[in-house]
Amino acid sequence: MHTLICGSIAYDTIMVFQDYFKHHILPDKLHVLNVAFLVPDMRREFGGCAANIAYNLNMLGGNPLMMATVGNDFQPYAHRLEKLNLATTYIQQIDDTFTAQAFITTDLDDNQITAFHPGAMNFSHYNSIKDTVNINLGIIAPDGREGMITHAREFQECGIPFIFDPGQGLPMFSGDDLIDFIEKADYIAVNDYEGQLLQERTQYSLNELADKVEALIVTKGAHGSTIYAEGQQIEISSVKPAAIIDPTGCGDAYRAGLLYGITHSMDWQTTGQLASLLGAIKIAHRGGQNHTFSRNEIDQLYFEAFGNRIF
């Protein structure tokens, strides 16, 4: 059986401006803004929530399948996925589009100016859950709006449990939209900011949201995470990372741990701790897919962090 990961596949172009934006953006001239930044440092990363989650879950020994839409420029990414032994069965190429991509310029204060082009992601509803086989768990990660709505409905119709992970796509939905997602989902995963926004838009408290699903997971960065499940609030401590380099993709790594724990019937404490460990490993590396680990390494790191073995 497989875990189906619905979400984006994207290229991230990251540029570093060796100065401070505040030295070049004049507050009294914002209405006629016209600036250019010399960026001698640039790198291109493979990203997107679906691919980041699948990357981590695959290293854990899970069985991920991605469902995504990509553009005509997908070939370099396809070659990478092939080398990683990640199937492209449910990745559909859309003609005359680009794969989703983010262009991020960062200054020396770690301020960021980002432009995001959704491209083929806007056609995610062209994929159907009903075309899949041997799926026992799914996740809806940030994707095209219509695709997220369609896939939630199809997961429910197919009787496949899934995690609703709205992420940065949450502002696209009204309170009624979000309530509809929640009523269909089996699990919800958000960070603390998204959790606050979810409460404001639905007019439900975290405890009320938790009552509607098997588990509500709220991540809080360096402050760990809280899992609302079985009438309890389970506090998960963060794991001290080897270094703090780049938070990009940490949430996706955490979600891979959730998916693995759920499919292997782990208790919520263990599942959350595994997820927390994956996030700590990721943050010590740039980009969403440049860290590596083996199951043996995870087992040892888990033992060092929590005092017992996981595999």
Rank of each mutant, 00 (worst) to 15 (best):
Y90I: 10
I91G: 02
D95F: 08
T97F: 10
F98A: 00
A100P: 13
F103A: 10
T106V: 12
L108S: 10
L108D: 08
D109V: 03
Q112D: 14
A115S: 14
A115H: 13
F116M: 06
H117P: 07
P118G: 00
M121V: 08
M121T: 03
S124N: 09
H125W: 15
K130Q: 15
D131S: 13
D131W: 08
V133E: 15
N134V: 08
N134A: 15
I139D: 00
I140K: 00
A141E: 07
G144P: 09
R145I: 04
G147R: 07
M148P: 01
H151P: 00
R153C: 09
F155S: 12
Q156A: 14
G159N: 04
G159D: 01
P161S: 08
F162S: 09
F162C: 08
P166T: 10
G167Y: 05
Q168G: 05
G169H: 02
P171H: 09
P171I: 11
S174I: 07
S174N: 06
G175P: 01
G175C: 06
G175M: 07
I179E: 07
F181E: 01
E183G: 13
D186Y: 04
Y187S: 12
A189F: 10
A189V: 15
N191P: 00
D192L: 03
Y193Q: 07
G195P: 00
G195V: 03
L197C: 10
R201C: 01
D211V: 05
K212F: 01
K212P: 00
V213Y: 01
V213Q: 00
A215W: 00
A215C: 02
A215N: 05
